[in-house]
Design a protein around this nucleic acid. Structure first.
Lengths: 214, 214, 214, 214
DNA sequence: AATGAATGAGAATTCATTCAT
DNA sequence: GATGAATGAATTCTCATTCAT
């Protein structure tokens, strides 16, 4: 893993008090991400989050209402900014759809699969049914946007004649699926059958682009 | 979902006592499958398993040493027989590789994605890191065998000239990935964006076969 | 320890059925003695007693009403016959009181301290307050009789001029105390500071006889 | 019984918080001493300890890791300080060995046999085999020290010509044994045959001193 | 009589959350 | 704001005892 995740902070300047508060909140979310990544939601103790952030147990409750809410915040703060970044990078309309698709998948691999964020992915799968509210948020703010991104590129590719016309239902999921599975594999089975993310990426992109190709 | 999962029972005839015990064990595993499917491992209460199976609290411990062991048994009993069936169905060497690949994916969709077993799949992904022992078992007895199955078909397809030569690392994972994601999606996001498994399957098979095609 | 404790069986001949029953009862008591000796009353499981006796759990309840009653039977059957034996051996009035006291203490050391019975002693101390009924029985049937035995010898010794007149309150307890402590020590502290029962016995007898001597 | 046992507190002044914590720890140990005294280790419920100390169930676990550790702490805190006191009182070298031995036995009777501490003594004997760690601690920190104390006095007595030379193995145990037995008797058999500690003490000291006398 | 499967009361322990300091 | 002591509901697991076979 090549990236330490840092929660991005809001832009506007604040009073020192506010800044410190913001900083502590950020530290707590980062600590929580590490703890949830390590042991999952149920087994994570608020105590451990507090320890990891260097504050006392009670303090966590000054910033978050409950363990559930803390979890939701972790997901939001960790994943949403990525989408913004992904969307921003889309604005290179002169590139071929093929290149843009490659680029986005690469982004996905490096930003999510090769960092603690892949644990978030796993946590969503694990806890989603127990946190419908969170699942809904994640769908609305992460998946839908990612889907729109991919879909737009593919449609553009079809329009340009790069890609063939394809059935649309589940297309985005199928295009990205290899990456999802890679992230899970690294977390669960890597110790039994190691997966080389770079080589895997090549296989993925090769298969998918060939599958889409006109 | 079109299939109620029934745990297969061993063939040899036994004494009545033994049979009843076997039956109760089976009932407990089926009950546990339902409970784990509903709420996941951590939130599952042994009491609920007992209730669901219509026995008392203590009885569960006559059959399984602990919640963990019960979970492992559920996974084993639910998934392993499928592989046997999958392997058995392979013996039609006159069919084209394309058809056999389709057939196996279809099997995967109907037997796993469209039944309670998809929850097991999800649980393996969710809890695997907390159960290295189980993850190892699952890898050895389910994934490796599935992998060999798919790989053999693809290689045969290459030999026959149906498929092109491809990078191998992660190939099986990428071929199956769409199905994994479909199962997860149905469990976590279906209520926000429903997924039609049949249509999805078409997209999946279309993309993959085209991607593999020579 | 030089003696395997065998529960004595009643003398009168019985039908085969009766004899078998008696034998199984005996086997259960012996098994229970071993189990209680190993782990104490509370930690002893009826299952373990059954296993140790080679019968099934339910069978124990055919012979004893409850764990408590089984415990009481163990105590009775293990200790009472000893007293009978001790009393019987008293009938040698020509021996000096000194010799008879020595002889009885020797008996105590070999029959109780150097066998599983020392565990009974420990169990009485441990569980007595929780089993007033048992403590009472033990007092009436073991201690009182032992006390009478010792007291008679001492009084005889005084009459013969071997021993001096002594305060009587707690005399028997003080005379025997060294043996009680030896039994406990071997069970609890022997691994940290081993106690040689033979040498200990010499010290005991030397101190007591000198203490009693006219 | 003439003494209410109070756990001694450390000397250094602390913050109010610390003091309260210390006080609560002390209260818990005292409560536990009462509960263990009443029913023994196995039958003691952590709930009862909590109730007895006026705190909630969970609180006990803030101070002690487990029931076992609580038990060990009770033993330590209850017995060790006594040894310090006993050792301190030794420094009167002008007194005769006879007087010093008497004095120490008296101390033993009043501080241990005539207080809740006799229950600890009983519990050590009863539970020692189940708590090897505790038995070792008790041997090293209580018995060894007591033994050295008694042994030193006796040797001094021999040197002064007050006592005769005696076999040493188990001498201390035999000298003290009467007291151990008295403590046990009061707890287990007193209701059936009451024991008057003062009279008993006289018998004990009379027998032992005469036994040792040159 | 013997078995051993089933029961369910009971206890230790954990941990999210609260709140006095 | 921050702390960390206290709470008590919740859950796993145990085992004496019962009872159908």
């Amino acid at each position: 893993m090549n990236e330490v995740i840092e929660v991005e902070q809001t832009a506007e300047p604040k009073s020192k008090r506010e800044q410190q508060k913001e900083a502590k909140r950020t530290a707590l979310i980062e600590a929580a991400l590490r703890v949830f990544s390590r042991v999952g939601f149920a087994a994570a103790k608020m105590d451990d989050v507090a320890d990891e952030a260097g504050v006392s147990k009670g303090t966590v409750y000054l910033y978050f209402e409950s363990k559930e809410q803390l979890f939701e915040e972790v997901v939001k703060v960790t994943m949403v900014p990525l989408l913004d970044e992904g969307v921003a990078s889309l604005v290179e309309p002169d590139k071929s759809a093929t290149d843009r698709l490659k680029q986005h998948l690469k982004f996905f691999y490096s930003k999510i699969l090769d960092s603690d964020r892949r644990n978030i992915m796993r946590l969503i799968m694990a806890e989603g049914p127990n946190f419908p509210h969170l699942a809904e948020f994640y769908h609305a703010n992460v998946l839908s946007r990612g889907q729109a991104l991919i879909q737009a590129i593919i449609e553009d590719g079809v329009a340009r004649g790069e890609f063939r016309a394809m059935p649309k239902h589940g297309l985005m999921q199928n295009v990205v699926a290899g990456a999802i599975v890679a992230g899970t594999w690294k977390l669960v089975f890597d110790q039994f059958q190691p997966l080389d993310l770079d080589a895997y990426f090549e296989t993925h992109i090769d298969l998918i682009l060939n599958g889409l190709k006109a």
